[in-house]
Amino acid sequence: MAAPAHTIITFNNVVKQFGRFIALRGVSLDLSAGKLYAILGENGAGKTTLLRVLAGLAQPTRGTVSMLGTSDLRTVTREIGYMAHPSMLYDELSARENLHYFAALYGISKEDRCASLIQTVGLDPALSRPVGQYSQGMRQRLSLARALIHDPKILLLDEPFSNVDVRSAREIASLLGQLRDSGKTLLVITHQSDLLAEVANDQVWMERGRIVTPEERE
């Protein structure tokens, strides 16, 4: 990695409340550019909400988030790629039709970008089957391609390995390593930390809406 890593994402005492439910209660966190973070913790610990706040999908109830030097996340949407737990794809459309539409949302109209991305994630660009008939592994790969369509600096991935066969999971994990090496910052939620063991730079543990240090976990 290049020069000493600088801070790219800062959470300052972020609280997120949904009606009667509080998902985050005072998260403070600094993340450095060019690293791959594994986000770990039990279900309901607030991991998904953490990513949704970063993606600009949920507004913090209290506290501030800043990213790439701004706290107005609407201005940096082009630098964020987000892969949610659901596929965020249209089941009735083929891989290329899906990617074309999402590329259009970013003002990208280059034909070859979609095809090469489909290849990058290990799918066949000639495939015309609708996505609804894909296996979970293929769907996750395409979902990753969708998140990468605008070549973002920061990638947020929610359970990229869930229900994926071991071979696909390994391939996705090594692809994530390559993306990190190309200078991107990655936040990956997973239950299978062993898959990321080789490529993760750091781990972030969450528990009951808070970040916990390894000592606190015991």
């Binding site: 999402f102 949302l105 969708r146």
Partner: peptide, 11 residues
């Protein structure tokens, strides 16, 4: 499939 979120996070 939460496709609406993909729209919301785009510019």
């Amino acid at each position: 499939n939460q496709v609406l979120d993909a729209y919301r996070i785009s510019p």
